[in-house]
Every structure is written in structure tokens, then in C-alpha cells.
């Protein structure tokens, strides 16, 4: 119990700190609103002369996009701080403390990400309601979408941690981060629901973890409990697989660490 309490304290401190600087999110809200505004033009043009594509109306696609963007913009990119720590050698200060480095980063990441997700969901719903003028979402979806997003964020944490670990081998990990981001954009279903993809791409996405970070939470927001529970076992399985992978790679990488001076 004592062990868990210290991570909860990290969570709480980051949470309080983030709440004190809510105004920092204004810039992010602008970008968020801008994306949705631009996309409403693009999708309107795509939907001209059509009412439904692959079971999605224009309004549903816009709400779907708002939810995917909510998850996408909520992820706190701690991998760049982590890479900086590894390169500068400051990681030595974290490693000799009586806590797990992985769980320490997780507590801070999940705290900031959850706050962002809550604020983005409220702000995004408001904006998208103005743009589309309709509400094709189940109310219970907000609860199950939020839970599914939480697990999506947990899965994403392991990928961010892996990105941070690349600093043990490479000077700059921004290119890897870009490419990871693009996997979420494409096979993760950020820009459009997976149902839009050609059959062979759709089959590939089933075997990849990315759709459980973006697509599944967004669909759970729209459709509620049924969708959430349908995907939940595989989402958990992915968390388990990548969690173990991160633990093994981290143990291996730390052995490479060589810090000089003090």
C-alpha cells in the first residue's frame, strides 16, 4: 500500500500543478478548434451529394474526429523530457531514488493526460456542436468513451516510453516520434474511422495496437458500452504485451547507462 501511495502522490502533485495553469491550454484549444474547423470544410466537400459513407453521416464523422483528436492531443509527450534526461545524464538522479522510474513517469503522464482529456472533451463537444448543430452521440458514451480513452492512454504510455528509451542509442528521437504519430494518424484511425479503409488495410489494423489507442476510444464515445466491452479484452491484452516489452527493454537499456562526473 505504501508503495502505491508514493505514485499516487506524484499523480496528485502533477494534477494540482496542471490545474493551477489551466490557462496554458488556451493555445491548445485554438489549435484544436482550428483542426476541426478546417476538417469540417474538407468533409463537407467529400460528403457533397452523399448522406452516408460506410454507415457514417457527415455529423457522425465530425464527432468521431473530435473524439480522436481529443485523445491525440491529450497525450503528454514526456518522451522528449526523458530523452533529454538520458542524454544529459540527469537520469542518474532519478534512478537512485526509491521508486520505479517507469511508474514515476507513468504517474506524471497519466495525471496530465487525464486533465487534458477532460478539458478537450468538454471544449471539443462544444465546438463540434456549433459546427454540426447535431448530437448523434449516446450520453452513456461519454462515460465508456472516457474509460476506453484512459486505457488507450495507458497503452500509448508504453510507446512513448519506448520512444524515450531510443535516446540510449540515438542522439535525436524526434523522427521516431513523428513516425509513431503517423501510425496513429493512419492505421490508428485518427482522420477517419477504420471502416473507411480498404479491406486488406482493415485486416492489418486488427493485428496492430494503434487502433486501440485512437479508434476504439472514439467509437466507444459514440456508441457506448457495447463497443467498449467488445474491444476491451484485446485492448487489455495489448497493454499487457507492450508493458512486458517495455519492462524488458528498459532493464536492458539501463545496463548501457554510463554517467560520468557529478
Amino acid at each position: 500500500m505504501e508503495k502505491i501511495r508514493k505514485y499516487f502522490t506524484f499523480f496528485k502533485i502533477t494534477f494540482i500543478n496542471d490545474l493551477a495553469y489551466v490557462s496554458n491550454y488556451i493555445g491548445q484549444f485554438f489549435t484544436f478548434a482550428l483542426f476541426m474547423f478546417v476538417y469540417s470544410f474538407v468533409w463537407r466537400a467529400i460528403y457533397s451529394g452523399k448522406t452516408v459513407i460506410e454507415g457514417y453521416s457527415f455529423e457522425m464523422v465530425m464527432w468521431y474526429f473530435m473524439f480522436t483528436e481529443t485523445v491525440m492531443m491529450s497525450k503528454y509527450p514526456f518522451y522528449s523530457d526523458m530523452a533529454e534526461e538520458i542524454k544529459s545524464g540527469d537520469i542518474a538522479y532519478s534512478l537512485n531514488k526509491p521508486y520505479s522510474y517507469i511508474l514515476f513517469n507513468f504517474s506524471k503522464y497519466i495525471s496530465t493526460s487525464v486533465i487534458r482529456m477532460f478539458l478537450n472533451t468538454v471544449f471539443g463537444s462544444f465546438i463540434i456542436l456549433i459546427i454540426t448543430g447535431s448530437f448523434p452521440v449516446k450520453l452513456s458514451g461519454f462515460l465508456f468513451g472516457f474509460i476506453s480513452s484512459f486505457f488507450g492512454l495507458v497503452l500509448n504510455f508504453f510507446f512513448f516510453f519506448l520512444l524515450g528509451l531510443t535516446a540510449f542509442w540515438f542522439e535525436d528521437n524526434s523522427s521516431f516520434a513523428f513516425i509513431y504519430g503517423k501510425f496513429l494518424f493512419t492505421v490508428g484511425g485518427l482522420f477517419m474511422p477504420v471502416e473507411f479503409f480498404p479491406a486488406f488495410v482493415r485486416n492489418i489494423t486488427d493485428y496492430m495496437p494503434f487502433k486501440y489507442i485512437i479508434y476504439v476510444p472514439a467509437r466507444s464515445y459514440i456508441e457506448g458500452f457495447g463497443t467498449f466491452i467488445g474491444f476491451f479484452p484485446v485492448q487489455l491484452l495489448n497493454i499487457l504485451i507492450y508493458g512486458i516489452l517495455v519492462y524488458i527493454l528498459y532493464s536492458f537499456a539501463v545496463k548501457r547507462l554510463n554517467v560520468n562526473g557529478g
Binding site: 524526434s174 523522427s175 513523428f178 513516425i179 503517423k182 501510425f183 473507411f196
Partner: peptide, 19 residues
């Protein structure tokens, strides 16, 4: 890595239009 990373990154963006 940075240069090729960016090239690959940009090709991903075309995926949306292709679909």
C-alpha cells in the same frame, strides 16, 4: 535518420487522400 524519417512521415500523410 532525421531526413529519411521526415520523408516517411510525409508519405503517411498521403494515406488519408488515398483512402
Amino acid at each position: 535518420i532525421q531526413i529519411f524519417g521526415m520523408i516517411i512521415n510525409n508519405f503517411f500523410l498521403l494515406f488519408f487522400w488515398w483512402v
